[in-house]
Design a protein around this nucleic acid. Sequence first.
DNA 1: ATTGGAATTAGAATAATTCTAAATTTGGTG
DNA 2: CACCAAATTTAGAATTATTCTAATTCCAAT
Lengths: 131, 131
Amino acid sequence: MRYADTILEIIASSHSHMTAEQIFFALKQQYPSVVLATVYNNLNALYAQEKIRKISVAGYPDRYDKNTRHDHLVCRRCGALLDIHLSDLTRELERQTGFAIEGYDLKIRCLCPQCRAKEQAANQAYESPDL
Amino acid sequence: MRYADTILEIIASSHSHMTAEQIFFALKQQYPSVVLATVYNNLNALYAQEKIRKISVAGYPDRYDKNTRHDHLVCRRCGALLDIHLSDLTRELERQTGFAIEGYDLKIRCLCPQCRAKEQAANQAYESPDL
DNA sequence: ATTGGAATTAGAATAATTCTAAATTTGGTG
DNA sequence: CACCAAATTTAGAATTATTCTAATTCCAAT
């Protein structure tokens, strides 16, 4: 996996949550001949090694993130992901479920600040339309 | 949405977590002329009305579930979903994040009993292979 | 240099889902 | 009841994301 380290760096240094395609374009800056399938190969391998996380939200392509313990806010409206750091639930979940837990994935549905502003504007318009 | 109620019943009475295609085949029993796109239309509408939940796990098609408060165990190996009922985290998440939370989605990664048995068998075989 | 295995490439294939336009159904109104 | 408008369904094409396959290239060890 010649590109694995570069891909890891791209993901680690990104403040957004990149799709395979975005990672592909970033990698292309350095290696113009690289191909999308290679990115998928590498991402799948890195994911299998638990070096990265994969975030699936219905309606959006999978996004990739560093594998540090944190959780995500997902904007209901635009799909944006925001990292948040909550207390670790593993112990409590093991206690409540009785299962050996390998990890968990907590996505909190809310509105990101931008979309909240837009929805409020839309509601205002509805309540007092400019006719 | 002529089929919405029937689809709701199919989902409500299912003990598995059905894909759009499985729901489509179940609906076809009663309405043989129905078409997959209609199922998607209805599922999307029901989801928008928050009458059902949609569960996305990377590598598997979306699955649908009743919209009662519960969480899921996801088998790392076969993708099976199991319902579990944990204490509600909403208040605590709002406290920790300061966001107005509309809901959350907690998926716990583990091995389902069947896959745990298979992995143990595989490990046994590896440690003491029958040569 | 030669070989073998792994990774990459190119591009076809697949799977899931959405889109579009036409046809049908439904509900309300004269 | 007959008609119209709006909403829904249908059929099938289109799109998107991802995986697969086979050929090629790369690299390390002989």
